[in-house]
Write a protein that binds this DNA or RNA. Structure first.
Lengths: 146, 146
DNA sequence: ATATTATAGTTAGCCGACTAACTATTTTAT
DNA sequence: ATAAAATAGTTAGTCGGCTAACTATAATAT
């Protein structure tokens, strides 16, 4: 009666659980569920443009605009126009943003550690290979064919 | 400069791509991105309660209520009160819903096939084992410890 | 038998994601 | 040099997910 859930369904379940734990660990920093990757990216590379951030996160510019507006409102970052190209706006972390990013980094590390407890290094490598293989299969599937 | 993306980040990427392809294949059936699993579940098991559906999909009842309202409006399903327990409402696919479910099943099969092209059966088993291991690690992590 | 508690759904309001249509600026072509 | 095309962001509207607060019905306890 309970059909074996397929692999992608299982993956979704795992990721939901993963996100839940990360959120739980940083809920005191005004950081919302989609923001951790952004904070880490900015912490590694201050002053990126919104376009670069969107590409980096694999998200549409419209999505990013709204997220950044919220994060600016909660004081995690500020935006300033690029001097040479008035179209682009560059994003900088505030002090609060840097503290949040540090907390996020710790939380992500902790969850990642827990998540892969009991994995051998070669198993993690194998998992990475599988994921890259899947990614390659899906990305190279042009919408035209069958 | 480009840090190795961690495994969960990679997983998110793969799933986004997966969902994109499923959506592409069923966009002519009034079926929106979160609805495929629901349609399949109902197609296998008509007349489930909302509670059962929510648990099955791993989603909060409030989320389901809104999704079902939309799907009822587009004519994919209808709801009726249980006779024995007036609190529960049972969900049934319409003919249109059954046709959509069939299309979804085909689309999912096709994407799943593409996704795992070049995988050996034992590799898929290994991947499942890894995911269950991760799921177990995360699910057994009580919020209290560390 | 009544009062309490538990369960099923709903509503409201938020965040994250998308597309489509828009503005503003910079490049490129003619 | 001016017109056309490309690029960066924004806005509006929708779907999917959540939490919190609510209603209605059923089950339990005293």
């Amino acid at each position: 009666m309970r059909p074996e859930p397929n692999l992608t369904h299982l993956m979704r379940h795992v990721l939901k659980n993963h996100r839940f734990h990360v959120d739980r660990l940083i809920r005191d920093y005004d950081v919302f569920p989609g923001q951790p990757p952004l904070l880490l990216r900015l912490s590694d590379n201050d002053g990126l443009s919104q376009r670069e951030l969107a590409d980096s996160k694999g998200v549409k510019p419209a999505t990013l605009t709204v997220m950044l507006q919220r994060m600016e409102k909660t004081g995690l970052l500020r935006r300033s126009a690029d001097e040479k190209d008035q179209r682009v706006s560059r994003v900088h972390l505030t002090d609060k943003g840097r503290r949040a990013a540090e907390a996020v980094r710790q939380a992500m590390d902790e969850v990642e550690t827990r998540c892969f407890e009991g994995f051998l290094p070669e198993e993690k490598l194998l998992l990475r290979r599988f994921l890259l293989h899947m990614q390659d299969n899906l990305a190279s599937w042009s919408p035209d064919e069958s």
